[in-house]
Structure formats: C-alpha cells, structure tokens
Design a binder for these strands. Structure first.
Lengths: 223, 223
DNA sequence: TGCAGAAAACTGTGATCACAGTATTATGGA
DNA sequence: TCCATAATACTGTGATCACAGTTTTCTGCA
C-alpha cells in the first residue's frame, strides 16, 4: 500500500496524525480506558505506522495517552477522582491567568470571534450535539488564550485540556448536555470587550470551577 | 555497528536515551541555542537513530527541545526574558503546592534524604562544581515533590524544570556559582520535619523566587 | 586572493522488516 | 461442557534503507 502523497501541503504526516488523534481525544471520540494500537490507528487514518508512532510518542509525553508499563500497550488514561482534582487545580490557575493577559491585547475582532463561537456553541447545545459542543467550547477558550501571547502558559493549558477531554465527553455523554447550559462565556466576552482583565480572570475561573464541579459530581455518580 | 545489547535491564533504549538527554539538559551540558541532530546524538550515545528519534519526539513535546519550523532542524531553545517570566510564574505556582502536599506525607526518611542531598549540594558549591550543584539541586526539589504523590502536578514541574535547566547553567556558568549559596533548603527541611505544610510552601516559594530573580538579573546583564 | 557554483555531507521523515514478547483464539482431551 | 494447552494474531521496539531538502565544503575560474 503506497501512501506516499504529493505533499501539496507542507505539514508533516505525523503532525496531521497528531492533530487527528488530538481532536478525537479532546472531543472524546476515543473513550477513556480504551486500548489503541499503532497499527490500528495507522489503518484507520490510512497512513503507515511510522508517523503514528511519532504522534503517539508526543501524545504520551503530553499524558493524553498512557502506556501500560507491564505490557507496554497503549490506552486512553481513565480518569480518577485524584487526577481530576489535580487537573482542575492546574486549569484553575493557568487559564484565568491566560484570560487576563488576553484582555490587555484584545481588539474588537476578538470580541466578534468569541461571540460567533459562542453562538455556535449555543446552537450545538440546543441541538444536543455533544461533539460540536465540545469542539466549540475548546475553540472559545483557546481563541481567547491565543491572544495572551504566552506560549509557555498556553502550551500548559493545551496539555491540560488534552488530558481532561476524554473525561468531559464521558461525563456529558452520560449526564446529558443540558446540565452545562449555564456557562460564563457571556460574562467573559463582556470583560474582554470592556478591557476588564480581572473581570475576565474571574469569569473564566467561575466557568472552569462550575464546569469541573459538575464533572466531579458526575464522576462520583458513575464510579 | 551492532548496538544490540543483552537488555539485562528491561527499560527500553529510548527511555535510557531520553534520560541521558534530559540529564544533559537539566544540568545544562547542552547549551541553549545549540543545534543537535538525531544522528549526532545517536553516535554520541552509541545507539541507533531510532530510539533517539523517539526520545527527541518526547523532549520536543515537553518543549525541552525545539524544531525550527523552516528547516525542521533541532535545537535547544534559547531563553528569552518573556519565556523566563512565564516559566517563573508557573514554577512559583506548582512547586510550592507540591511541597505543601509532600509535607503531609513526609516521614523521617524523607528528612534524612533531603539533608543528605543538601549536604552534597553544599559541598558541590564549596568546590565550585556547577554540574554537581545543578544535579543536587534538582534531586533536592524532586525528592520532595515525589512525596506529594500528585503525578499530574509533578509532571508539570518536571516539564518546567526541563525547560529552564539549560538556562540556569548558562547563567550560573557566567555569573559564578557563588551567587546562589543562599537558598531556602534548610528552611524547607525544617518545615518538612515539623509537619508545617504552609511553611514548606513559603520556603520553596522563596527559594524559587530568589533563584529566579538572580536569573532574571543575570539574563538581562548577558542580553 | 576572492567568489560563484557544483559536489558532497548531513538533516528529518517515512516505509519496511525482524524480533520478542503478550493476548487472543483454536484445539484436543476429559 | 469445561478446561488446559498449543497455535495464531497482534503489540511495541529497534534497525535499516530511501528520499528530498538544506547546509557545508570543495573546486575552479577570475
């Protein structure tokens, strides 16, 4: 099977594979605890195992995938209450900080972008489309964080989302998306619009805090 | 060149390579901005390029190595003031938290271990052995953090340390190790011994804060 | 001596194979 | 029908090669 492509787009295959798996994880299309393998992923994505190996290595480093130390097999980490607590704490520190920094660099274009994403998010909620909701929620937060121009912190936030993504999907898939209609996005947008950095910090902190609380309750109920 | 070894120790070759490069970075034996390559690293370590490739992929994901997007070549990231500020902020949040958690799980064995490492550190300082100092300083902090039993946070701290390591070495190599004789390790050990979580939090925060301040000044002086 | 331009060396990437384990499935006997 | 055991399939790991692109070195002309 010759998969050599004309490389019209210059991005390396392993980057595309990474992005594909990453999206699958963030939107929770791969369930926690589920086992995956290099060859199965490769077959699914229509590429050779080699770039998958590169992408997986990266995802393991980001703790978005785990290696069973006994048999060295790959799996999506299953979320424990302890892990959830640590991830919550970390998100609650880094993400409000990014939001506050973003405000000082914001413009009306960002406000419009956030409003558009939020509208899409609301529609996804109304339709009960969990996949689309997950993607829109991610897009909202990172459109904002991107503006902070703090690559180290943003990378940290990205890693945390990646770890918590599969979780969210399981929880919301069971509990129903209607639980999370109440977010603080409007509040955050207003803070960005009015240049209120501390307001944005509070809004994002509240958004995360409430979301994680719901997850905590749901995780306990499931486990 | 047959490098197949008897695999007496079960750890995979790419893990050993990772650890070797990691140590080289943490102790600053590879200078920031310096270019490296898969094959040169492989030759240096006496292994084939394949496990090096795996290890490097992991280090890039941890931002301990960087890929030049233009020519895709590897290098050790050079530290900017902006990057230093973000890393400081992140360390200042996560590491005191780990220290505080560690205290609640500490025992006399940990205290003795920390004292031993600190003694080694002091001797390295007296001898002016920067390599040994760097290794001992890392050992001290992570012997403590290890006890927190918070793998997510500890991984974050490890990643931050990995990013800041090459930096520290350059700064202290130029400025001389005598600048940093004053640390807060004794204070931290005492807090661990007496079970004072908040004291440990303060001690580690002060230790980091003062260390990073020195680095900030040195970086500005150099740049 | 200086400087184009060709040649060689080196770069990361991807494919393919071999290997030693582990897990799964099939098989045979009670 | 049930269970131990053998056979098969599948796993990650490492080695080796090919390739296209970039960088460095060498060469020959002025």
């Amino acid at each position: 099977m010759k998969t050599r492509r004309p490389l019209a787009d210059s991005t390396a295959v392993h980057d595309q594979v990474y992005e594909a798996i990453r999206q699958a994880l963030i939107t929770g299309r791969i369930a926690p605890g589920k086992g995956v393998s290099l060859r199965s992923l490769a077959a699914e994505l229509g590429v050779s195992p080699m770039p998958v190996r590169d992408a997986v290595r990266r995802l393991v480093a980001e703790r978005a995938l785990a290696i069973n130390p006994a048999n060295k097999r790959l799996s999506v980490p299953s979320l424990t209450a302890d892990r959830l607590e640590q991830l919550s704490l970390a998100r609650l520190w880094v993400e409000p900080e990014l939001a506050a920094r973003a405000v000082t660099r914001a413009d009306t274009g960002l406000v419009r972008q956030l409003q558009a994403i939020d509208a899409d998010l609301d529609e996804a909620l109304r339709l009960g489309d969990v996949d689309r909701y997950m993607a829109a929620n991610h897009a909202f937060h990172f459109a904002l964080y991107e503006r902070a121009e703090a690559d180290v912190l943003q990378a940290m936030a990205g890693g945390l989302w990646l770890q918590i993504g599969p979780f969210m999907r399981v929880v919301f898939g069971r509990v129903g998306a209607d639980v999370l209609v109440a977010d603080r996005h409007a509040e955050a947008i207003e803070a960005v619009r009015s240049g209120d950095a501390e307001g944005a910090r509070r809004a994002i902190a509240a958004d995360l805090s409430e979301g994680m609380d719901k997850m905590r309750i749901a995780v306990e109920a499931i486990a």
